[in-house]
């Protein structure tokens, strides 16, 4: 927080626009979590721990729709569209490239809105996050959500039996992206 950077570069402004778009998006993740049946029954400490550990991954899933994989562009929540080539020249080029790659793979699973919501709930409620106090309660909720997701996917993708497995394999992939990128620096005008 005590670091200050040169504000004169254009890349700074683009990066700031991306940073600011996180605030409403993070708040929406918090509101979403509170509506997951059973989430509010967890201790507030565990609710906060799950959110702090999992929100980046949820944003990766949610932001997937902002990427146009064919055109290689990203539309920020402000509505402005940038090419991946331009973004790659900024400090966090690798982050955008990873997000685009992830979006491409997620899109091939062709999930509908309900499946996506349930998948996001599974991403968020993971008992193996650090700092969880009441493991049993989080595990029980996680099991319920995974069973619900499995049932929904099996019903909707009866002809594509590997969809659920492919979706579960996205979880370690997201974890890895979180580990690589959550320490990226964001800049804010102050």
């Amino acid at each position: 927080p005590s670091l200050y950077v040169d504000p004169s570069q254009r890349s700074q402004e683009i990066w700031e626009e991306f940073s600011l778009s996180f605030i409403p998006a993070v708040r929406e993740v918090v509101e979403f979590a509170k509506r997951i049946p059973g989430f509010r029954d967890l201790s507030e400490y565990d609710q906060v721990s799950l959110l702090k550990n999992g929100t980046f991954e949820v944003l990766m899933v949610r932001f997937a729709s902002l990427f146009d994989v064919a055109e290689r562009t990203v539309t920020f929540l402000t509505g402005k569209c940038y090419s991946l080539e331009l973004l790659r020249s900024l400090r966090a080029g690798q982050l955008f490239t990873s997000m685009c790659d992830f979006s491409e793979k997620l899109a091939t699973l062709q999930l509908d809105k309900d499946e996506m919501s349930l998948f996001i709930a599974v991403v968020l409620v993971s008992a193996d996050r650090s700092g969880i106090q009441d493991l049993k309660s989080v595990e029980a909720l996680q099991d319920t959500l995974i069973r619900a997701l499995r049932s929904l996917i099996m019903t909707n993708h009866a002809n594509e039996t590997t969809t659920f497995t492919k979706l579960l394999l996205k979880l370690p992939e997201l974890r890895s992206l979180n580990n690589i990128h959550s320490e990226e620096l964001l800049a804010f005008k102050v």
């Binding site: 927080p1 670091l3 200050y4 950077v5 504000p7 700074q12 700031e16 940073s19 996180f22 605030i23 993070v26 708040r27 918090v30 507030e44 609710q47 906060v48 959110l51 702090k52 929100t55 980046f56 944003l59 990128h181 959550s182 320490e183 990226e184 620096l185 964001l186 800049a187 804010f188 005008k189 102050v190």
Partner: peptide
């Protein structure tokens, strides 16, 4: 003149979540 503060993505997310829970208490 404009100055910029730098935070990590993880810190930023954590900060917004803490604020949100504090606001609703």
């Amino acid at each position: 003149p404009k100055t910029h503060r730098v935070m990590t993505l993880a810190d930023h997310i954590s900060h917004i979540i803490t604020q949100d829970f504090a606001r609703n208490q």
